[in-house]
Design a protein around this nucleic acid. Structure first.
Length: 985
RNA sequence: GGGCCCGUGGCUCAGACUGGUCAGAGCGCCCGGCUGAUAACCGGGAGGUCGGGGGUUCAAGUCCCCCCGGGCCCA
């Protein structure tokens, strides 16, 4: 036997939500639930670690966490033992740059003078402080994760796992040091990955110059090259032309220029040269090997050394006819394409630029100048030497540092790489094993991206990051890569308390080969390495949980925004394939971005940013949760206060459904759910709907179609329960037939209670409040979180019945339409309704759901039949037919209508007196005309029952009414009637 | 320049993968009902060239192509 208690009438989430959160915290519900699920089948969720660059999360990040939370709650509801460690991506440039700013630093020199140790501690403090604060915000939205045991990339244990990975890569022969042109930030003095570069391009104005390179041995013939980076000219080695394009020799004045025919007109127009003459045409390939003189040879010592190297080389891929002259100045030290072509021709790679973006001594006159500042000096020198053909400017997209906005340069440096190019096929194959939601997320976007894969630069020349665990002998160059702190200790005898720089830099040992000093390569690692190893580093593998790992690998589920296709989804795939030879996750849900109300990206600096605390101030936490969860997850989501308010209203209906239910169920002894064959069609219908809902939620959640699942619970509670079932049930629950009332009570109880755990996936706070307040009895678990999601009873699902109810509802709607056209109130009972239809299912619905139709349409009879020909009928169409309402009012209908009017007035008066239903009883006296008298006599029992009256009496005058009665005069259909109500003591 | 996503009533969004009931819902608007869920609840109505054009098909919001507009990613 179960009992329920009345749920408080007003929906006040602002008050109860913090109370529930506090209750969970104090009663340690999360921890105990974890404990309770131990030993059951595992579900491994891996949190994509947010970057703690602020103390408040972006609302989109809250959305991200709510998505995760709903999945976790669902899996726990299924009884699974869920791994739900939250992660934090703590290293990297943003935090370094913020720390630098806070300390007023502008270069690496400042950091070194300040002390790397103190600087790194500051970075760690900042990351820790922010992640603590962000955790608080996530908890506010009822995100249930293992907040006390997060994985943080700065922890020693995590770093050791990362080191193990590097060692393994080294052992596989894929880790190599290489010299290569890379994007470089001259302010941060570090390499940036292609991914980091793609983050930010800016429109910059640069010179656009055409330069004449004199052809060797010919006094007045030149190759005409074009560049927007004059500063790369000191690093020039060759000129690239397209082998199969047509080139021309053009006479301008007494000089001859060589350029692509396709570019001739545009170049001459740009240079303002009208007088020119084509003297020769030939294919680009004929130029191959042609030698030229560098115009700055006298100023740049490096160029003198390259005298014998300068020549024309061919490239199909990198010479475009879209811009420039078709003769491309090539500096293999300052450009990736140049580097590649140069390597084919065995050209030297020169890069006379230092870490801070200044020319080195090799650049002669320009030594010490910032490269971009040198542009004008170089242009002037070219001009002086008569080598400048034309000078203009161009505004183009140019990469800048994503952290400090400094324009990047490309310079050649030594970096550590992981060889990937030969893994392309394997990576594609592995990515094909992933279940992508939505499908196009992986099948299209991801594959395209993988096709352009290059080797990965994992080194960075910074401080706050995982140190590259590579030691090299100063003397003989012998290299050792370590995979843990204890390996460091074995070799050096030093036990590190903190594995970061600068402490790890101080560790040296004797070279086993030559006895020299083994010193660590000072680089740290790309943060994408950090997060890429999270699938094993988060649990400390292989130094810890080694046995357990096979059980939780690969990860069951991950979800992040679509920006992470090229980010985390890829870096996990990369690390999984490198280290375990397979993709480390099974299912990915890709979600969208949160945009502002106008559809623009939300940013603090745009001022359209809504901080999560403001959301909580204005709407319920559950409202925000439902708002985001009912939207298609993989599309961008527009934030909307209006939308939130709408959702809040819907949730208040859900609340009211429970208020209503508990109002009728309270203090009743509620037995088990009746057998199906004991039940009437409406109850069978509601149980069918309940089980359909459960089934669809499970399907939706399993497919990670969260919007389907979340809408399902709302539609059941609102459309089915509130709009229909409860309207019917309210009469039945007060039925004179006690066993009928009892049956309805048991069904209603069952439905409301079974829906709660499902509701709690999406609106855990509301579900918990309702559970604790009304449904939980003493031997029930302490929190709704402990309840398992009931398995849908497939046998209870009756699709035909559901279908029939839809038809019955259409019939009732149509009758309402017919009434309103005829001006007949719903309250007025009508004699009969005829449904005209050819549809068998509709006919069956009229028969099966006759009772619902009679009650909802307020008619005394309904039948399927032919279109009536005689009499006064109102009609309306519906999906599969027509309904006809007989508008003739007989005695029965008139009196019935009056009785309803009387009942309604009595109820109003009861309410005015503050009387409670089912508790206080009344006596009623009515005075009015003869029709009222007859209505009262005829419907005495019904009125008395509905209004909890012991006595209903028609009186001729007020004298017959006891003195203490509350009396009121009413007007019904233009006639006066007096009603007195007196409470029975 | 390439790839991907989106464009459905005034607003916010479902439906599209697996073509086939008159394209649905909520809000807003208009009308009405209920009055023991009541600072609630319920019903009805108006309102849509499903961005535009072409094609495939007996049948297209749904599949294909082109274009326009918005966005993201890459170059």
């Amino acid at each position: 036997m179960s009992r329920v208690r009345q749920l408080p009438r007003n929906f006040d989430p602002r008050k109860y939500e913090p109370e529930i959160l506090r209750f969970w915290e104090e009663a340690r519900i999360y921890e105990r639930l974890r404990e309770a699920r131990k030993g059951r089948r595992r579900f491994h969720f891996l949190d994509g670690p947010p970057y703690p660059s602020s103390d408040t999360p972006h609302p989109g990040t809250v959305w991200n966490k709510i998505i995760k939370d709903s999945v976790l709650r669902f899996r726990r509801g299924e009884g699974l033992d869920v791994l739900d460690k939250p992660g934090w991506d703590t290293h990297g440039l943003p935090i370094e740059v913020m720390t630098e700013k806070a300390l007023g630093f502008s270069s690496k020199k400042d950091i070194e003078e300040y002390g790397i140790d103190k600087f790194v501690m500051k970075c760690k403090e900042l990351a820790s402080r922010n992640l603590e604060s962000m955790t608080g915000h996530f908890k506010e939205f009822a995100v249930s994760m293992d907040w006390d045991h997060p994985y943080r990339t700065f922890e020693n244990e995590y770093i050791e796992s990362a080191w193990w990975g590097v060692k393994k890569i080294w052992e596989s022969g894929r880790l190599y040091e290489g010299e290569r042109p890379v994007h470089w930030c001259p302010r941060c003095e570090t390499v940036l990955s292609d991914y980091e570069v793609s983050e930010s391009y800016k429109d910059l104005m640069d010179p656009s110059i055409y330069v004449k390179f004199k052809i060797w041995g010919k006094g007045n013939e030149y190759l005409l090259i074009w560049t927007t980076t004059p500063w790369t000219l000191p690093g020039n080695v060759a000129v690239m032309v397209h082998p199969s394009e047509t080139y021309v020799k053009v006479r301008v004045g007494d000089e001859f220029l060589i350029l692509a025919k396709a570019r001739l007109q545009a170049v001459m127009e740009e240079a303002g040269v009208e007088d020119y003459e084509v003297v020769e045409e030939f294919e680009g390939r004929e130029l191959e090997g042609l030698r030229y003189e560098h115009p700055l040879e006298d100023l740049v010592p490096l160029q003198r050394e390259l005298r014998d190297v300068h020549r024309v080389v061919l490239s199909e891929e990198y010479v475009t006819m879209e811009e420039g002259s078709g003769c491309v100045h090539s500096a293999p030290g300052h450009g990736k394409e140049d580097f590649e072509v140069g390597r084919r021709y065995g050209l030297p790679v020169v890069s006379p630029v230092d870490e801070r973006g200044r020319f080195t001594e090799d650049a002669g006159k320009y030594a010490g100048l910032q490269v971009r500042e040198a542009n004008n000096v170089i242009i002037r020198d070219l001009e002086e030497r008569g080598a400048l053909f034309h000078k203009g400017t161009v505004i183009h997209k140019y990469p800048v540092c994503w952290r400090c906005d400094t324009p990047l340069i490309i310079r050649t440096t030594k970096q550590w790489f992981v060889k990937l190019t030969d893994l392309r096929e394997k990576l594609l194959e592995e990515s094909g094993k992933v279940r992508w939601v939505p499908r196009w997320g992986g099948e299209r976007r991801f594959r395209d991206w993988l096709l352009g894969l290059e080797d990965w630069i994992i080194s960075r020349q910074r401080y706050w990051g995982i140190p590259l665990p590579v030691w090299r002998c100063e003397k003989c160059g012998h290299i050792e890569v370590v995979g843990s702190a204890s390996e460091v200790e074995e070799r050096s005898g030093i036990r590190l308390e903190d594995l970061h720089r600068p402490w790890v830099d101080e560790v040296t040992w004797k070279c086993p080969k030559c006895g020299g000093v083994m010193r660590r390569v000072p680089d740290i690692m790309d943060v994408w390495y950090d997060s890429g190893v999270s699938f094993f580093a988060s649990v400390g593998y292989p130094h810890r949980h080694k046995e357990e790992f096979s059980e939780i690998f690969p990860v069951d589920f991950i979800t992040e925004g679509h920006d992470q296709i090229r980010g985390w989804f890829f870096s996990l795939l990369r690390m999984g394939t490198l280290l375990f030879n397979r993709v480390p996750y099974k299912s990915v849900l890709m979600h969208g971005f949160m945009l502002d109300e106008k559809g623009r990206e939300m940013h603090k600096r745009l001022g359209n940013y809504v901080p999560p605390p403001e959301i909580i101030k204005k709407v319920a936490r559950d409202t925000f949760r439902f708002f985001v969860l009912t939207k298609v997850p993989w599309q961008d989501l527009r934030f909307s206060w209006k939308g939130l308010r709408e959702m809040e209203r819907r949730l208040s209906v859900v609340w009211n459904v429970y208020v209503f239910g508990t109002t009728y169920l309270r203090d009743k002894e509620l037995g088990a759910l009746p057998e199906r064959d004991e039940l009437d069609p409406v109850n069978r219908w509601v149980l069918s709907k309940l089980n359909s809902m459960m089934r669809r939620i499970r399907e939706g959640m399993n497919e990670y179609h969260l919007h389907v699942a979340s809408n399902e619970v709302l539609s059941f509670l609102i459309d089915d329960l509130s709009h229909l079932y409860l309207r019917v049930a309210r009469k039945k629950l007060r039925s004179k037939d006690e066993s009928e009332a009892d049956r309805w009570g048991r069904v209603l109880y069952h439905v409301l209670r079974e829906a709660l755990p499902y509701l709690s996936i999406f609106a855990p706070l509301m579900a918990e409040k309702i559970y604790l307040e009304s449904f939980r009895s003493e031997d029930d678990p302490e929190s709704v979180n402990f309840l398992l999601l009931a398995e849908p009873d497939i046998g209870a699902i009756d699709e035909e019945l559901e279908d029939m109810m839809d038809r019955a509802r259409s019939i009732v709607s149509a009758s309402g339409y017919a009434r309103s056209n005829a001006g007949i109130k719903r309250r007025q009972p009508l004699r009969e309704m005829v449904v005209v239809t050819e549809d068998e299912m509709t006919k069956k619905a009229v028969e099966t759901l006759r009772e619902v139709i009679l009650a909802e349409a307020n008619v005394r009879d309904v039948r399927v039949g032919d279109e009536p020909v005689k009499g006064n009928w109102a009609q309306a169409e519906f999906n599969s037919g027509k309904v006809f309402l007989n508008l003739e009012l007989g005695e029965e209908e008139v009196l019935g209508g009056l009785a309803r009017e009387l009942t309604r007035r009595i109820q109003l008066m009861r309410k005015e007196l503050g009387l409670t239903i089912g508790l206080e009883r009344i006596e009623v006296y009515v005075q009015g005309d003869d029709e009222f008298r007859r209505a009262l006599e005829r419907y005495q029992d019904e009125i008395a029952w509905d209004s909890d009256a012991d006595v209903i009496k028609f009186v001729e005058s007020e004298d017959e009414v006891p003195g203490s009665s509350f009396g009121k005069e009413w007007e019904i259909d233009g006639r006066r009637v007096y009603i007195w109500v007196r409470k029975v003591e």
